[in-house]
Nucleic acid binder design. Structure first.
Lengths: 231, 231, 231, 231
DNA sequence: GATGAATGAGCGTTCATTCAT
DNA sequence: AATGAATGAACGCTCATTCAT
């Protein structure tokens, strides 16, 4: 399995960078360094100056790759969703049961990344955590619309589309597949965050993967794939 | 009904401000002015300087009331949730059916505010929109934990608790009431935002209050309050 | 005479500064310090940072007074022309002969300032030299038109107008009074500069105020105030 | 006439460039591209980076030809004056009357270039306009003296010398020939600029080549070549 | 000889904050 | 209590320049 992932290459929308970060050592260092730093100090206080210091380069050099810290965040999240899509395809192909495919998909989207299977320059455990904490800042901006036009969120939208299709396969009459999936994705992020910082907003039961369990059940019931009997 | 609301006074945790904004004209202008400005330019580019200009006061004066723009956002969101709690109590008291109470609560949390019933200095339509776009930035910060200790999120947590209690009244064995409610609240915010900016992530059907409908149904099914039969 | 000038106050167009520099000690220091520094290092390499260092203040403080170094230059030149206008009025009032008034005016415009009669915070000898070297940079810009609309050059234009009027008094049929005067003013600046740096472009005769002599003669002949007989 | 000019080759002082721009396609593109760009955005905001972009080359390549943007401006103006000298010689040779020669020279120096007779890589209409707006920035610098020693202004000085000689031919006792000619040259530039941006500083009469008329008359009177009778 | 990549240095600007009144 | 003035610190950005290929 590792072999498979080592070969993958995530393509990110060209508008998100000035110079392809994969194309040079410095580019990779910028990406991995930014991930480390955002993980450490948070996106809000993260600056190109601090990044330059931490990777022992200069702001000017970073600007050759990314137009702004915002675009860099878009790049990181896009990369994340691109990688997610790969994993999704990998773990659902050749699975005939749509319910099983949906179930696996939800697990993928809601589970915490615990080990770095893929050996890229990007630490997926950290990226997962950064996405949980910071990804919403990538679209809760006054520039959403223009970023959206430039294709900044297309991988994400694509992913939601794919899983929506599985839902429609199971229940063609269900009216809100996208809403359900985006609720699950964003919800899972929030729940992971709440579990760590605002536990009263969640219900984490020790020794159980509560978040995944909860969302799987919720989705299957919502689309009518599980029978419910009230008494 | 207006009469009831005109009398209400939302109490906000004292740690969120230095000087009670309700206590002076300037204080009120700071709050209402900040709301206008954040609504207009977004929280990210909002600064005390710009606020000072727009309300024709000075930065120094604003600092008498709020320690930082972050605390001001916490104040605004706290105020929002305090006001929500009032509305919640108002529309659920004397309703015997817990399912009906739950249903009304979800409606309250997921519907867009469309008119300013309460005549305070705060424009609730704008505040609702600001909460949708910016509230998550109030806790997705490196200061969550200390803010949380200071009680910055207690009103929000209380609100989630109250509705969780209704759920447990309906189904005492349901394991994830907080998770479900916080998912609904945050989810609804996202869906409103997506509807405006990233429509492919949602399923808005014209002439229908899709978001409320969707979440009501989702919740009731999740807790087993609606019978489902698969075929 | 000194007494007269000590009382004068030059009014400069309000669009050229953010906060009136005359209104505070810092403001005056910014103006006089900038004059010293521009005189020393030239306008091209002059920056607000260097100015801040030299007057032991900060860039931020300077920005309270001037929007940009360009606006500061406009302020200095405007001040210069305002001051020139005062001197002009002073040395032409009560002089009945228009030719004498014109003659004195040209002397004023073309002579080098050699002593600081006026005791303001501004060193007029230096300002004169700065105007000679840098004033044309105040209008040879892509922003001329907007600066002009804001009134940045109005004092200068007024001054030219006034002397043009004297010319028309002498010779009402002369068609190019403005052209002639602006040629003299800018020409004199250039000649002073050439005398110091590019002597082959001028004809300086020792012990003679050649520039003034030349321009006086040139003007009087051009407007037909001196009889010429060719042989 | 075109044939004559097509063969000319303007020699520019070798200190102004590192590698002869005429010697390669890239060199020519740098020169013509810089002219376009300076014409478009002005010399102040013009940079090698922008130039590199606009001619689809790199900064590094441009540095092979020119040491700095300042040297490039010196090159352009030197080229201009070299070309002017050619035109001057061409239109005065075989004209016996010195007054006629002077008259033609002034016309040459003061008229706007309206058509590209010479077919070089350099657009003379643009160059004329750039010289009007930017040429004074080539010597109003702290580096004048060293640039002058390097011969940056020698063509210009030579040109002034040549016309001064004509003046002395007409009136050998005239004391200020260089002053007069440099006043005319710089003055004409200013008047063209004023006509476009600060009309109140000039007197442009429609349908008349006022600038040339004015300066011709002024010069001839100044040197006593036209009889003036006062009444 | 020409170019792509990288960088040191510095600029203009703004922010959050403090002090004196 | 409210404000006007001032400032330290940092940010985003660009420039001129150099190096390696």
């Amino acid at each position: 399995m590792e072999d498979f992932f080592t070969k993958i290459e995530i393509r990110v929308n060209e508008n998100l960078f000035i110079k392809q970060p994969d194309s040079s050592e410095l580019g990779k260092k910028i990406v991995s360094g930014s991930l480390d730093l955002i993980h450490e100090i948070g996106f809000d206080t993260f600056t190109f100056r601090k990044l330059a210091n931490s990777i022992e380069s200069t702001e000017a050099s970073i600007y050759r790759y990314f137009e702004s810290k915002h675009k860099l965040l878009l790049y990181l999240t896009s990369w994340y969703w691109g990688w997610m899509e790969y994993r999704l395809i990998f773990c659902t192909t050749n699975v005939s049961s749509p319910i099983e495919r949906l179930s696996r998909s939800i697990a993928l989207l809601t589970e915490k990344i615990k080990e770095n299977l893929t050996s890229t320059h990007i630490d997926m455990i950290k990226l997962n955590q950064v996405v949980i904490c910071e990804s919403s800042k990538a679209y809760l901006t006054k520039e959403v619309d223009s970023d959206n036009e430039e294709g900044a969120y297309s991988v994400y939208k694509q992913l939601v589309e794919q899983i929506s299709d599985i839902i429609l396969e199971i229940n063609p009459t269900f009216k809100y597949p996208h809403m359900l999936i985006s609720t699950v994705i964003e919800g899972a992020h929030h729940q992971h965050y709440f579990a760590a910082h605002l536990p009263r907003l969640t219900d984490i039961i020790k020794g159980e993967d509560a978040i995944t369990t909860f969302y799987k059940d919720m989705v299957l019931k919502a689309i009518g794939a599980i029978e419910i009997t009230t008494n």
